[in-house]
């Protein structure tokens, strides 16, 4: 006779426990942690380069890069003078909290103001994994097309900030910015929506001010 037991728990309970532990240590350190998620080639690293140039004089920044292969992204940020640690997933399509914990044990990060975690390029798999971040950011470049929020609702519903990238290319595409704004507002009425171009510099100030405001709010809440 088969027996049945109530096994009610979150499937990702182990990941969530590790993420909560990380969240606690980030809170104690007063570090704002941002988890960046997008398709490959949307401009995550390029946005981080622009953010680094704008913020490095006033804030201690650090970066964890998730990729299947190569140290290329971490090298790009180190070249700008901030500490960066590369996690190589060897084919896995997302980062999990235990990998981030492992990276923090290896990386010699000084007390950071802002830690960026650049996830593996993928709009799907990283969605479910809490990394102990303060919030997720989803990037969408205008060349990817204006139907993506409804095609990938999970990440757009969950990310506190949606960043449109490569806005300098808007005149050369049929990307309907208003349609995208409405899709994001439908999925995530409380989320922030920014339009940026790392190349022209448009919107980078707004993005950096958002980071500064969230950092101040986090530290204000702690005091």
């Amino acid at each position: 006779m088969a027996q049945t037991v109530d096994a009610r728990q979150k499937v990702l309970a182990a990941n969530e426990a590790a993420a909560q532990e990380l969240r606690g240590s980030f809170a104690a350190a007063g570090t704002l942690v941002v988890n960046l998620i997008s398709s490959p080639g949307s401009g995550k690293t390029t946005l981080l380069e622009a953010s680094t140039r704008a913020l490095r004089a006033r804030y201690r920044l650090g970066c964890i890069e998730g990729d299947i292969a190569t140290e290329r992204d971490a090298d790009r940020l180190r070249a700008l003078g901030i500490p960066a640690h590369q996690i190589l997933t060897g084919g896995a399509c997302h980062l999990d909290a235990r990998q981030v914990r492992g990276a923090l044990e290896q990386a010699l990060f000084p007390g950071l103001d802002i830690l960026f975690i650049e996830n593996v390029g993928n709009l799907i798999c990283p969605t479910s994994y809490d990394l102990g971040e303060d919030f997720k950011v989803v990037l969408l470049s205008v060349t990817e097309g204006d139907d993506k929020p409804f095609k990938y609702p999970a990440i757009f519903a969950r990310a506190a900030v949606s960043v449109i990238t490569k806005s300098d290319l808007l005149p050369y595409t049929s990307f309907d910015l208003e349609a995208v704004r409405q899709q994001v507002a439908t999925l995530n009425p409380d989320g922030a929506f920014l339009v940026t171009s790392a190349r022209s510099g448009a919107g980078i100030d707004t993005w950096c001010r958002l980071l500064e405001a969230r950092l101040a709010a986090k530290r204000g809440g702690r005091a």
Binding site: A2, Q3, V5, A7, V11
Partner: peptide, 23 residues
């Protein structure tokens, strides 16, 4: 007016059915 989204974030283990070797 703007709508809100509820639910859809579940990823839960609910029940496990099994047999024991004696059974």
């Amino acid at each position: 007016g703007a709508l809100r989204i509820e639910g859809g974030q579940e990823l839960d283990l609910l029940q496990v059915s099994f047999v024991l070797p004696d059974d």
